[in-house]
Measured scan of single mutants.
Amino acid sequence: MASQGTKRSYEQMETDGERQNATEIRASVGKMIDGIGRFYIQMCTELKLSDYEGRLIQNSLTIERMVLSAFDERRNKYLEEHPSAGKDPKKTGGPIYKRVDRKWMRELVLYDKEEIRRIWRQANNGDDATAGLTHMMIWHSNLNDTTYQRTRALVRTGMDPRMCSLMQGSTLPRRSGAAGAAVKGVGTMVMELIRMIKRGINDRNFWRGENGRKTRSAYERMCNILKGKFQTAAQRAMMDQVRESRNPGNAEIEDLIFLARSALILRGSVAHKSCLPACVYGPAVASGYDFEKEGYSLVGIDPFKLLQNSQVYSLIRPNENPAHKSQLVWMACNSAAFEDLRVLSFIRGTKVSPRGKLSTRGVQIASNENMDAMESSTLELRSRYWAIRTRSGGNTNQQRASAGQISVQPAFSVQRNLPFDKPTIMAAFTGNTEGRTSDMRAEIIRMMEGAKPEEMSFQGRGVFELSDERAANPIVPSFDMSNEGSYFFGDNAEEYDN
């Protein structure tokens, strides 16, 4: 993207840094990872977990959730003011799984939030270390993106479920800051804005008074975040219109849905970061690795190297396929839920299948599930090659597409044709070009129609051997075009429920 120079890199967003050079960025990201790792080690000690239990991804998720809940100030305040039966607002906890007599047992633990905050700050040299908290939120978000298709949420806001490739980060909490905003897809931002506008339509006082002023500035800020994701002048001009509207209503909703559809071809720039579970960072720190000293990046080879040398386990339900569970977590670790499966298959070195073909449910185990038949197995999170994460949407291309997802959002900077089903997408653009945004709409449609099938995206960008740390010898991959490109292809993934 041309304006790259004016933006802070995501590592800076990730670490609240002012302008830093590459070495400083690597050190501050490393410091953040160190903090998460030290916190995780301490929690495993508190909970008396064995090494194996500490490497269980379900335990990692519970521990991450506990610290996120302990620092969720708004919710904590709300819980104190609106006490609900049987919930102690000062405590947080969740299921911890232990191996007892050759069987997995679930144990519900409860801790004072104050105590968890103390352990977290102690692991982070006394700081609140917001960057580390956001990092864990993005890992949870990436896992949700890989596990669930947001059909219901899309339909509720009037969008087409086939636009799911635009929904990265749709389950990120509001408090995820600049680093969170960077990884949100165009569809996620559109959905947040539509929800806001709908509230304004239904509630006369939404934009009024002292609160209304705050609401208005939040609305304009979200519009600017979305505008910054678009790469064409016409899309940005249309966002200006939406932002400046005196009284946002149905016309703005129409414009936003139009823009979301246009992003299936004229893709937005959305950041991709490899955020790993805390149970990967903990053992690495415990083994003596100093992330701050060595430096770390979320968008280069580092996460690949770390996963190459990590042992992570997962509980497996009786009829689940461990290899499929591994694929789910591998995609989440690489922030690749909406990437082209052919690119992923090449990088991973084994075939990556669409969601609907995987015999696996989510990673988390519900409290009512029976533990008797639970097994555990090693997650295979290694890769054959590594590639640089991208934040450009890439230019655009036609490809055989599917009944489910009709476009992709690249996660890796790797040369390819970008699949999208042009006739299906263009069919949504018939007729409606009147109104105050008509010239911009016409211009956007013209650009979409001009998108050429034979153009290559990320020209000359390749993948790298894991021994090639400096990215000196790019390998331009070859793809098996007979395979499906979309992950949520004609899909039956479970729906995400809060």
Rank of each mutant, 00 (worst) to 15 (best):
V463C: 14
T92F: 08
Y313W: 11
A182K: 02
E469S: 11
W120I: 07
M105Q: 13
E252V: 13
K305W: 11
A442W: 00
R361W: 01
P303K: 09
A70R: 03
L264W: 10
M136S: 02
T437G: 00
T215A: 13
I257L: 15
A451R: 14
E443Q: 13
E294H: 13
M456F: 04
G490M: 04
Y111H: 11
M105V: 11
E380S: 05
D255I: 08
R106M: 10
S287W: 12
S413C: 08
V329L: 13
L193M: 15
P410Q: 06
K184Q: 09
S478F: 13
K90W: 03
E73C: 13
R174T: 11
L266R: 09
R400I: 09
R65Q: 07
W386Y: 10
L108A: 06
S367T: 15
P354Q: 07
K113F: 07
Q20D: 00
W386P: 02
R102S: 10
E369S: 08
K31Y: 02
E220C: 03
R19S: 03
H82A: 05
Q459R: 15
Y78A: 06
Y289K: 13
R348H: 14
S367G: 14
K214R: 15
R261P: 05
V463W: 04
H140D: 11
P419A: 14
D51V: 13
K103R: 14
V190S: 14
F464E: 06
T6F: 00
S478P: 09
C333Q: 06
E454C: 14
R118G: 06
L298V: 05
M189V: 13
T360R: 02
W139N: 06
A2Y: 00
S345C: 11
N202T: 13
M32F: 04
P173R: 04
L143M: 12
R38G: 13
D439N: 12
H135W: 12
T378E: 03
Y496V: 13
R118Y: 08
I197C: 12
E81I: 13
T215Q: 13
S165Y: 04
L56Y: 06
G362F: 04
Q149D: 02
V312A: 11
N224S: 10
Q235H: 08
L226K: 07
G132H: 06
L47F: 09
K184F: 04
K452T: 12
T430Y: 01
T215G: 15
A22G: 02
L418D: 00
H82K: 09
D240T: 13
N395A: 13
G200N: 05
S413E: 01
I257K: 05
N142V: 04
A271M: 12
T157C: 14
I347W: 15
N395W: 00
T390M: 03
G30N: 15
S482H: 12
I316N: 12
R121A: 12
K87T: 05
M331R: 01
R74H: 12
R175E: 04
K229L: 03
N319W: 01
S60V: 08
V352I: 13
N368V: 11
T360M: 02
W330I: 09
R446S: 13
F338R: 01
L381G: 08
E494V: 08
K452W: 00
M167K: 05
E294V: 13
M137L: 09
P419L: 12
S413G: 07
I265L: 15
